[in-house]
């Protein structure tokens, strides 16, 4: 089988109070769904979809991120089990599209993580406004990103594949100009 080549493969950065690292492969599904399909979707996924804006739900190794009122990004282990799960659904009132390779992810951690993100992201990332578990599609400089706060000083950032080099370099430029 052909080799998998992740963007940002083997890049790494760490400095005082900041570490930036690519996150390995994940299965990702862009889920759009009608209210009537929620129950059956939640059953096959084994988790409750977050219905509140800017929130996420994690159960076992799956995380569902609220992106819009009928849109979620589902993250899971890279074993194609998500798309298989959706394949079992009878309902037609949803759309599950495999976007595993469309996005790639970067982890930003350390006490300066918020400062590094706030060079390009205009949102209020204080714990009060953006608590652990909060997530949002937003911008980082000229790239669109999805941001998920996984810890007080830890973020999971998703961007489209071809934007990852730009986002990575912008993060590094920020991390070296605090």
């Amino acid at each position: 089988m052909a080799n998998l080549e992740l963007p940002l493969q083997s890049r790494m950065f760490a400095n005082d109070g900041i570490a930036i690292a690519p996150i390995g492969s994940l299965e990702r599904v862009s889920l759009r769904a009608d209210d009537s399909a929620f129950a059956s979707i939640e059953k096959v996924l084994g988790l409750t979809l977050p219905k509140k804006p800017k929130t996420s739900v994690t159960k076992d190794d799956r995380t569902a991120l609220w992106i819009g009122p009928d849109e979620w990004l589902i993250l899971g282990q890279d074993n194609a089990s998500l798309m298989q799960a959706f394949g079992k659904l009878r309902s037609q009132k949803f759309s599950a599209v495999d976007v595993s390779h469309r996005n790639c992810a970067i982890q930003i951690s350390g006490e300066n993580a918020v400062m590094v993100l706030n060079t390009g992201c205009p949102q209020d990332l204080s714990l009060k406004a953006f608590p652990v578990g909060a997530c949002s599609r937003t911008v980082y400089a000229k790239a669109e990103i999805i941001l998920l706060r996984t810890g007080e000083n830890e973020f999971h950032l998703e961007c489209w594949r071809s934007f990852s080099d730009y986002v990575w370099k912008f993060l590094l430029d920020s991390a070296t100009s605090l």
Binding site: I67, G68, P69, E71, S136, R137, T138, V139, E144
Partner: peptide, 10 residues
């Protein structure tokens, strides 16, 4: 009209 293009998309 506005679109929350880089947000919820609506």
């Amino acid at each position: 009209r506005w679109r929350h293009l880089h947000g919820c998309g609506r």
